[in-house]
């Protein structure tokens, strides 16, 4: 019974982690940007979906769609307002550019966090679930919403795979992640590729946020832990590797679930962080890192 419980819960939470971290990995893989406002964008999507339901009185589908849209819009605003000006600035030395972007996205995330707390308080918010009720899976009473979360995560991951591997824009993104200069020589406008990946990332972060809001709920305090969680998964998987992030998400998700069930929920994150330290020592490139 406990085995199935851990298997089911671990799968749902890992799928959510994977979706949240894959966009983060994609951005880094293609443009070298570590977006430390990641958690803020996810929380913004949740609060938007929650506010749509409570203030605009829309149904759960429209609320969820609005949440995803806010994730998408917030991602593009982050790119155009914060990241792109720093990428193009001639006042910043090339070797310092990454640290400038890192700091700017971190501060941008804090600004979003404070704005959310100011407008909607720092109390946790949950998004109205699209599916309600429970079903019995291998004798485990499982919320239908948990299954829905895992299914939507995998659909989004599948669509991302198709987009990257089967479309022209996606192939340009893939090529840019392998060799940005080579792609430019082939006549692909790199800035267009960046817009595409930030748009994809926004949708992924929006979906992950809304699902997290339905599954567990978040508050403005979640901004830091969500960014840290995505960052840890991406470092564990190998910076820039989307498939590495996928594997690492499941390693972290199951490690956390096992700890929560077998030791104590209070120590949930500790073993995964210890593993991260070990991996950084033993193999700094992570599981499937390229950079």
């Amino acid at each position: 019974m406990l085995f199935w419980q851990i298997l089911i819960d671990g799968f749902a939470i890992s799928s959510l982690y994977a979706l949240g971290a894959m966009g983060f990995a994609l951005i880094f893989g293609v443009s070298g940007v570590l977006n430390l406002s990641h958690g803020a964008l996810m929380v913004a999507a949740v609060v938007a979906a929650w506010a749509a339901g409570n203030d605009l009185h829309v149904g759960p589908y429209v609320g969820a769609a609005l949440g995803v849209f806010v994730g998408f819009a917030a991602s593009l605003i982050t790119y155009f307002l914060i990241v792109r000006p720093l990428q193009q600035s001639r006042k910043i030395r090339e070797e310092e550019r990454e640290i400038f972007i890192l700091t700017a996205t971190l501060l941008w995330g804090i600004m979003i966090q404070e704005l959310i707390a100011y407008l909607y308080t720092n109390n946790a918010k949950t998004v109205a679930p699209i599916v309600e009720g429970v079903v019995s899976l291998a004798g485990v009473r499982t919320p239908s919403n948990e299954i829905f979360t895992a299914v939507v995560c995998w659909l989004a991951i599948g669509l991302l795979w198709l987009l990257v591997n089967r479309t022209r824009a996606g192939k340009a993104v893939l090529a840019a992640s392998m060799n940005p200069r080579g792609v430019t020589l082939l006549g692909v406008e790199l800035s267009q590729v960046y817009i595409v990946i930030w748009a994809i990332y926004g949708v992924l972060a929006g979906i992950a946020g809304v699902l997290l809001g339905m599954f567990l709920g978040v508050s403005s305090y979640s901004v830091g832990p969500l960014t840290a969680s995505a960052f840890s998964i991406v470092v564990l998987g190998g910076l820039g590797s989307v498939s590495g992030a996928l594997i690492a998400a499941y390693v972290v998700g199951y490690l956390e679930t096992l700890t929560a069930y077998l030791i104590s929920p209070a120590y949930r994150t500790i073993p995964a962080l210890l593993l991260l330290v070990i991996v950084i020592y033993v193999s700094p490139r992570g599981l499937l890192g390229r950079r």
């Binding site: 109390n123 946790a124 918010k125 949950t126 679930p129 309600e132 009720g133 429970v134 009473r141 919320p143 919403n145 948990e146 567990l216 709920g217 508050s219």
Partner: peptide, 14 residues
């Protein structure tokens, strides 16, 4: 300090 999350999960997990 917590409230929303345990309550929502209590209901969701019935």
């Amino acid at each position: 300090h917590v409230g929303v999350q345990p309550t929502v999960q209590w209901k969701q997990q019935q």
